Simulated assay, not measured.
Amino acid sequence: MINYNGILLTDDKSPVNLPNRGLHFGDGIFETIIYKNSEIQFFNLHWNRLNEGLKTLHIELPFGKDALKAHLLQLVKRNNENNAQRIKITIWRDGKGKYTPIENSASYLIENELFHPPENQIINQAFVSQKVTLHHHAFSHLKTISALSYVLAAIEKKERNIEELILLNHKSEIAEASSSNLFFYNVLTRKWTTPPLSAGCISGVSRRHLLNQLEATGEFIEEQNLSLAELDENYALFSSNVTGAKQIYQVDETLLNKDSEALTKLDQLFNEVH
């Protein structure tokens, strides 16, 4: 017998399958995928990240690569394949047990909704989070379903009524934005940098794609930690996730470079989808 929102139900009438390790322990991961122009964007990179994440958490893959693609396209077609869509895959470990799992098989849920690309690629001013500090650990780079740091960051951004939030790690190094990875471009040295995963940031699919693209086109790109004190008008700053790239003109009171050529370059590389 369970109590669900004040209503007593037998276990078989529960609105969710019980026991549920995703609900009880956040024992799982998720992926957000964009479908547009009749293609699943960055599918291979998403597949690779799913494999890496599940392997780290010792959860068995519930499907093969071809089966996953078929599942995604089936759902997309049912919801009008002519429209751009945002797809979310959530995978959690099955079985009973407390913290120690009894099994490693998995269940999954695939959802989708219409995708509306960002109307503006410019963020006039971002602010450093006053409440969320990131920490690097064995799974900090994964998109786990226990994403409280990013939930609290989103709440803070809403409460402060600001365009974007910059998250620092416990060493006061710049880690990422509230739901995006960050890229820096130094207009003097013509060097691109992005925080390393050791900064505590998520291993974003668009981050992987842009790193690959920048290297392939001969751009100087490296993973490097930067502090707020190092930012000045010689740096152009960009956020990136699977919805696209944006340029940030200012962080707190620090004015940054507004080099539009760098944004154009990043945007072009982002849209060269493989």
Rank of each mutant, 00 (worst) to 15 (best):
L188C: 12
A126W: 11
I145R: 01
L237I: 15
F30V: 00
N37G: 04
F42V: 01
L45K: 04
I102K: 12
A177R: 04
I102N: 10
L197T: 13
F183S: 00
L114R: 13
N124P: 06
F30I: 08
G26Q: 08
L72I: 13
R21L: 00
V128R: 14
Y4L: 08
S180I: 05
E230L: 07
S129G: 03
H116F: 14
Q130I: 01
L255E: 12
E111G: 00
R93F: 05
L269P: 03
N83M: 10
E60K: 15
I110H: 01
I162T: 11
A126R: 15
A106T: 12
V251M: 07
I122C: 06
R86Y: 08
P117E: 09
V187I: 15
H274G: 12
L152N: 02
V76N: 00
S198P: 02
D11S: 15
L214R: 04
L214N: 03
F238N: 03
T10H: 11
Q74K: 12
F220G: 01
T264K: 14
V128L: 10
T56M: 10
N79G: 04
I89D: 00
R93A: 03
D232V: 07
R160A: 11
N234C: 08
I7N: 11
L109Y: 08
G200E: 02
F25I: 11
L255W: 07
K258D: 08
Y150K: 02
S198T: 15
N225S: 13
A106P: 03
I7P: 03
D94Q: 05
N37D: 14
R78N: 14
E60D: 15
V273R: 05
R86D: 01
L57F: 05
I89V: 10
I166W: 07
L214G: 05
R78V: 09
R78E: 15
S203D: 08
H274W: 11
L231C: 11
T254E: 10
S149H: 14
V76W: 00
E261Y: 12
Q41S: 14
K69R: 08
